[in-house]
Design a protein around this nucleic acid. Structure first.
Lengths: 147, 147
DNA sequence: CTTTGTGCAAACGATTTGCAGGATG
DNA sequence: CATCCTGCAAATCGTTTGCACAAAG
């Protein structure tokens, strides 16, 4: 019961967020966003499509693409580009860094507060810097033995 | 004369570097690498193809791709991924950061010494961090007025 | 009821691959 | 001379688009 309530209220929150951003709430869009919010990794479109159709077949590939674009325009979702030809998506819109394992390719979020803030104001005369992000490369826990 | 000598010696250096890395020195490979070394920006394959065939038509698209792959495997060239679906190449293999203009998309190298070194050793228990890189977002000089 | 989203299939663009001929070491 | 590279065209893969129908507000 508690769980159902919690799940329901979470649904309501997501619906509300979508509406606030002026997005129509469709089952597909909801599913894409909810799924992205629920996971820690940064799936590709194909992974999303596969996982979503696992639970409840409500999405074509094209719809995932357009849903993601809408969510991105609304500022609810971000692209993560760390491998050529692979676009990943991230529902964590707060500032954060990334770690990428050179063995398995997995990408992990790294808390923004891990580092002292960098002074990007005077990087170069004339440049108007607005933000930044650190990408860390290395080997993750699981790949450690095999590295 | 001085110029010719300088150009010749530069050619020799490039040839030497390629050989040291165990790469056969072909006109195409040479042209791709020399061109990348000579420029400050980070061209795509199409830009490279266009620019190279401007001076001296020695390259098909497929060859540019395979040349870049060979150069990359040899550690002479790097991919720069900051826009979806766009792979850029960079002959600057030394550690450095990047600045990306959100108006024109231009990417500029930022000196490694711009920032104090970040401590990436203890980012998270179990993670074996090997390196990092900062990407700065903002507006470049030329886009300043229109921003 | 008007507007916008969905899903299919076709179109598209970037990258890869197979293969025959050619250049490199 | 053995090996590897080039260049073409076809194949592939991710993403976008056009359109008829359906759903949302």
């Amino acid at each position: 019961m508690h769980e159902d309530l919690a799940v329901d209220s979470q649904k309501d929150i997501i619906v509300q967020v979508l509406k606030e951003k002026g997005l129509r709430v469709t089952p597909q869009r909801f599913a894409v966003y909810a799924n992205l919010l629920s996971r820690q990794d940064h799936p590709t479109v194909d992974q999303l499509l596969h996982d979503l159709n696992q639970e409840f077949p409500v999405s074509s590939q094209a719809t995932i693409y357009t849903s993601l674009q809408a969510l991105q325009t609304a500022g609810l979702v971000r692209e993560v580009l760390l491998e050529p030809g692979v676009t990943r998506y991230d529902a964590n819109v707060d500032r954060h860094h990334h770690f990428r394992c050179r063995c398995c390719g997995e990408i992990e979020d790294i808390s923004w507060t891990t580092f002292e803030p960098l002074k990007i104001d005077n990087v170069r005369e004339g440049l108007h810097a607005e933000g930044y992000e650190v990408t860390i490369y290395g080997v993750c826990d699981r790949c450690q033995p095999s590295a």
